[in-house]
């Protein structure tokens, strides 16, 4: 959606126009589902959380000053709603077990020793690999999973991710790198096994 159209749509929503809000939900619901579906445990009701996200969006839409940051804001509400739900269920908000050391730029990439080799693009696009890729994305530590979904699946810029998650650009950069590193590592291992 073009910025001008989004701005008009949001103004209508801010004026309480439900039809406009339905259009907004229709346009952006997949972003919310993309993230939630990969974040929440299978037994949870994804739609229920998504519904809560959209109601929060509706209730606080008047507070949105910069329409250009709508997507980042939508993600922030989504992630926070998910964390709230975790807390309600008495679950701890996950912090990666293999948390890398801190550097001036943010979280440094862990010292890697695995030689990954090169993964052929044509193979990664095959159905069997897509299933495996989906699985290993699901298995990523949460903070890496969130950034890689935002970056690769929904196409957010580093700045947008930084705003959405309220983390520095350096941290965004290193989390994305770390997520990719982990995925490539897993895919390489799988690739080696399949080749044997």
């Amino acid at each position: 959606m073009k910025d001008q159209n989004l701005e008009n749509l949001i103004k209508l929503c801010q004026a309480g126009n439900r039809q406009a809000f339905a259009t907004l939900v229709k346009t952006y619901q997949q972003l919310v589902f993309n993230l939630l579906y990969r974040l929440v445990p299978r037994e949870w009701d994804v739609e229920d959380i998504a519904q809560e996200v959209w109601i929060k969006i509706y209730q606080s839409l008047n507070a949105l000053k910069n329409v250009a940051s709508f997507r980042s804001w939508l993600y922030r509400v989504t992630v926070n709603t998910y964390y709230d739900r975790m807390r309600q269920k008495g679950l701890k908000v996950e912090v990666s077990l293999d948390e890398p050391f801190e550097t001036e730029e943010g979280e440094g990439v862990r010292f890697p020793l695995v030689d990954q080799g090169m993964l052929p693009e044509e193979i990664l696009l095959e159905k069997e690999w897509q299933v495996y890729l989906e699985k290993i994305i699901q298995d990523l530590p949460e903070q890496y999973k969130i950034v890689i979904i935002m970056r690769e699946i929904d196409g957010l810029s580093y700045e947008e991710i930084s705003t959405a998650l309220d983390i520095s650009l350096g941290t965004v950069k290193s989390r994305i790198a770390r997520a990719r590193e982990k995925l490539i590592e897993d895919l390489s291992k799988y690739f080696q096994e399949v080749k044997r």
């Binding site: 939900v25 993309n34 994804v46 959209w54 693009e121 990664l124 897509q130 690769e152």
Partner: peptide, 21 residues
Amino acid sequence: KAIRNLPPVYKADEDFISKVI
């Protein structure tokens, strides 16, 4: 490229929007 080409994982019920509204 492979991640971007992953098929959508979740399709909302058709009445999702009306439920929200």
